[in-house]
Design a protein around this nucleic acid. Structure first.
Lengths: 247, 247
DNA sequence: ATTTATTGTCTCAATTTGTTACAATAATAC
DNA sequence: GTATTATTGTAACAAATTGAGACAATAAAT
């Protein structure tokens, strides 16, 4: 009989789930895994070790379970409803994988989930399913399979957060190569926001913000004018929150 | 010897902290408590029961510890660094209150804190300290005492979140009476944002958003034109996040 | 040289915001 | 009553931003 993780190593009742957004130049997708022999689709998640920073647990788990390494993750919400956990679902998943599950097994307990999201360029990675999962695949945000427990809500909240923050945080840095064209940048914005933007206004706006550096042109071989390449200027996040009244 | 709460009732390693913003018509303040005989200042916090929604734990704890009841709370972040907890601080607080603390007491463990914030009109409430605390008082956001552990960071993050969301969420509803004048509303915005706003532009903007209902005038007895009273139109939060591309 | 697709920028209209001005009050003083 | 005072609601115009279209400047193919 295979061994499940021991409760001694983990903080009980506490889990994380991660919403990994990927972009293929056109569409925004989310990484979803499917458990063996169950038909259950879920966000990649895991547990937190006794003496581990939650941020590190998410990075560790994501690497173990999907092969993804060294990606920028951001916490966006915590799902703490006592009704969100489903012992039956957990039992089904574990039994379908050949584990014997004790009635009082800690993984059947009620869990609070700390939720993270990330944005990556999915050309760069090849996620691999872990031993519990049949598959791990990208699904377009408007064509997700039915997700187990409250994972649909977690994914929706993540998308809303991403849309609200795209402008401010420029997390899109993770979705683009070091250097990119204005059109590439616009496509990221359009995919995340889920709507078309006006080319000229977008270009003027981005240039006026003084956050881009212009580099050499990119010659693609197309029968047309070559676009400039840009990169983000580095900027620091320093911000005085508790400052005295501004003038 | 007094009894500390038993671990059997609570989820281990999990706590919450609350940043309660209050507004007095002029300044934005935060509710801070001071533990007996220690000089430690802290945000009001507590633990989550085994079968309790985290949201409910925060409401319950806040009522028990401060007398505040029925206020709107919103989760804004989770503080999960493994270094954020300080067993020495916890021990000092408990011993200063006459409790005998076992070396391995669960309250000395590492804790992950789920953080909430709220906005209230502090004319309406009279917070009372709980048995562990000497005092519970309002402090202006730019004149906080030195807070224990990472509570300063939690408070700063809450203020930043509040500023970022004031416009969108109109949480300021909690800071105003049912009906209020345009000047009242402007003062809330100014206190939260920490800067003066232009009267005419503010008024035009608020009116153009179609979120206010105009009522009768308010006669204060002042030797001048009487302002109208307004209230927020109710609005529902329904929002399609996973909708197909907008045109 | 001509054609084609795409890019960068300009222009002018439409919209939004900043700024000032001013008429319309409530209450008080006379 | 009438004048005075403080404050409010809104108009008017300027300044800034955004929307929409036009167009010249390319790269590469014909």
């Amino acid at each position: 009989m295979k061994q499940l993780p021991s409760i001694n190593n983990f903080i009980p009742h506490l889990a994380y789930d991660s919403v990994i957004f990927g972009f293929n130049g056109k569409q925004l997708k989310i990484l979803i895994l499917e458990y063996h022999n169950t038909g259950f689709f879920a966000l990649p998640g895991g547990f937190v070790k006794r003496n581990e920073h939650v941020d590190d647990a998410v990075k560790r788990g994501l690497k173990e379970r999907t092969g993804l390494d060294n990606i920028y993750l951001e916490h966006f919400n915590t799902f703490g409803s006592s009704s969100r956990s489903s012992p039956e679902v957990m039992r089904t998943i574990m039994e379908a994988n050949g584990y014997e599950v004790d009635e009082n097994h800690w993984m059947l307990d009620r869990f609070i989930s700390i939720a993270y999201y990330s944005l990556i360029n999915f050309k760069d990675v090849a996620p691999k399913p872990d031993e519990l999962s049949d598959s791990i695949n990208w699904y377009a945000v408007d064509a997700l399979p039915k997700l187990m427990m409250d994972h649909q809500e977690i994914a929706e909240t993540a998308l809303k957060t991403l849309r609200d923050n795209l402008d401010k945080k420029l997390v899109s840095m993770n979705l683009l190569p070091e250097k990119f064209t204005m059109k590439d940048l616009q496509k990221v914005y359009e995919a995340v926001l889920g709507k078309k933007l006006r080319r000229t206004s977008f270009q003027r706006k981005m240039l006026s913000r003084d956050i881009l550096m212009r580099h050499e042109k990119l010659f693609t071989g197309g029968a047309h004018k070559a676009p400039y390449l840009y990169s983000f200027k580095s900027y620091d996040m320093a911000e005085e929150v508790f400052s005295p009244m501004a003038n």
